[in-house]
């Protein structure tokens, strides 16, 4: 395994991101504004309902929830399929594919380079801030579960992104598909509201899907509003999903890469 080339891919992505500093900072700013809007909206809902708690979430819990979701969103990006679409559009996918490195892994590390910057500049500082203002005393189990959940979520998002990215080899333009997928992940993963706000049956179904682990489960683990058994169940089911998705991605890639070969003639 050529580790140097993968590190190079990370470095290249970070440099590319930093080359457009204004863009990068504006993106972060607007992500923050989106969270601020959600906080305003939920404040109005709590004040309108005149209750101190909705489905176990008090208003301060909701503020913290969206803060943690904001931190998590900074690392759950959909960079990988965009990278693949760009490579297909400018024809560089054939050049990259012929290099003596594992192409899917190289792509993963390119995406990781971009995410690493977000994790360091946004994700970790916000999590520390959330921890400080919540006065939460996280148990060793919660910390371990949170880390495992975030790693699983990152792997699942990357594999889903890769799967969608492979479709660019057949359909070329896949931005719409990437956007649809991201909206689904946000809605079904707890980016709009905690999943326990959904009716019980739907909530149970959502916990069976691979999206719950992306935002809701880690955020709820952080806040302590989810039971240990649900945490363990989510980790288990997400691991199964990861294996299944990896299998599908391998099959999809083996089929899709033949299209690169035919494009090269």
């Amino acid at each position: 395994m050529n580790v140097g080339s993968y590190l190079g891919a990370i470095e290249m992505s970070i440099k590319a991101d930093l080359a457009y500093k204004a863009d990068y900072l504006l993106n972060l700013f607007f992500k923050f504004l989106q969270v601020l809007l959600l906080i305003f909206i939920w404040t109005a809902i709590y004040l309108g309902t005149k209750v101190s708690s909705i489905r176990g979430f008090t208003l301060p819990d909701i503020y913290l929830y969206f803060l943690v979701v904001y931190a998590l969103r900074s690392l759950m990006n959909m960079n990988l399929p965009y990278e693949m679409e760009d490579l297909v559009l400018d024809g560089n996918i054939a050049v990259n594919y012929t290099r003596p490195v594992n192409f899917p892994l190289q792509l993963f590390f390119m995406g990781f380079g971009e995410d690493l910057l977000s994790i360091l500049l946004t994700g970790i500082p916000i999590l520390i801030f959330a921890l400080a203002i919540s006065h939460a005393m996280l148990s060793a189990f919660s910390i371990a579960a949170f880390v495992i959940e975030v790693l699983l979520a990152y792997a699942i998002i990357s594999v889903i992104g890769f799967l969608i990215g492979t479709m660019s080899l057949k359909f070329v333009y896949i931005s719409s598909l990437i956007n649809i997928t991201w909206l689904i992940v946000l809605l079904l993963g707890g980016g709009v509201m905690p999943l326990n706000f959904f009716p019980a049956t739907i909530q149970h179904m959502l916990l069976m899907l691979p999206f719950a682990i992306v935002l809701y489960v880690p955020a709820a683990t952080f806040l302590g509003t989810i039971s240990n058994s649900t945490i363990l169940f989510s980790i288990g089911i997400s691991t199964v999903w990861l294996v299944v998705l990896l299998g599908i991605a391998t099959v999809a890639w083996n089929r899709a890469r033949k299209l690169i070969a035919s494009a090269r003639g």
């Binding site: 809902i45 004040l47 309108g48 956007n179 649809i180 909206l183 709009v192 959904f198």
Partner: peptide, 25 residues
């Protein structure tokens, strides 16, 4: 499909909000 999604998204969000709460005063 994507363009219709924002409306579907809004309908789901508002429906859930008004199911679990009285919504916006």
């Amino acid at each position: 499909i994507y363009s219709t999604f924002s409306e579907i998204y809004a309908v789901i969000a508002i429906t859930v909000i008004y199911t679990v709460s009285s919504g916006i005063a």
